[in-house]
Amino acid sequence: MKTVAVQEDLVDIREALNNKGYKIIDFKDEGHVDAIVYTNHHSGIASLNNDVSKDNLGAVLVNSTNKSIEEIVYIIEKRRYGSLFS
């Protein structure tokens, strides 16, 4: 099960990801997370570096602005925003 930190006010996204089997935590919770879901309105998160090493260590940052839950799940699972050729 993947652990995802979701911005507190993204209630619909929190519920949808929980229903899909993800463990949802708040930003203030400690420990390993696989992804961080936020909006443009959350100061500080958007400026973090989104580089992932070749071993896929660290959390992928997911800006949920204008994205469907399917797009968010894709980003969490594939650890990227989309194919270069689609």
Rank of each mutant, 00 (worst) to 15 (best):
S86A: 14
G82V: 09
L17F: 08
D26N: 14
Y74R: 05
F27V: 05
T39S: 15
K28E: 15
I72V: 13
I69T: 14
I24S: 06
V60Q: 10
N66G: 02
K54S: 14
D9L: 03
K54I: 12
N50T: 12
R14N: 01
A46Q: 12
Y81V: 05
V60L: 09
E77R: 10
F27P: 06
I72C: 10
K20C: 01
L84M: 06
N63P: 14
I76T: 10
V62N: 07
L48W: 11
I72A: 12
Q7P: 00
A5F: 03
N50K: 14
T3L: 00
I25Y: 00
E15H: 03
D12I: 01
L57G: 14
S86Y: 07
I75M: 14
N49K: 11
D26V: 01
H42Y: 12
E70I: 04
G31H: 09
E71G: 05
I75F: 04
D55L: 09
L84T: 08
G58M: 11
H42V: 15
S83L: 11
R79D: 01
D34A: 03
E70V: 08
L57K: 15
N19M: 01
H42E: 15
I36F: 07
K2D: 04
L84H: 07
D51I: 12
R80T: 13
K23D: 03
Q7N: 02
E8Q: 07
V62T: 10
K28W: 05
D51P: 00
E71L: 04
S68W: 01
I36H: 06
D29Y: 02
G58A: 12
L17Q: 05
K28M: 10
S53T: 14
D29T: 07
S53G: 15
S43A: 14
G44W: 10
D9V: 02
D9P: 00
V73T: 14
S47L: 11
N56I: 00
E77P: 00
G31E: 03
S83D: 13
R80S: 07
H42M: 13
L61H: 05
D55P: 06
I75T: 15
I45M: 15
T65E: 14
K78P: 01
G21S: 07
N40I: 01
N66V: 01
I24K: 03
Y81A: 10
F85R: 08
G31W: 04
L84I: 11
G82K: 09
L57T: 15
S68M: 04
H42N: 11
L17M: 07
E77S: 10
V6D: 00
R80V: 04
Y74Q: 06
V60K: 15
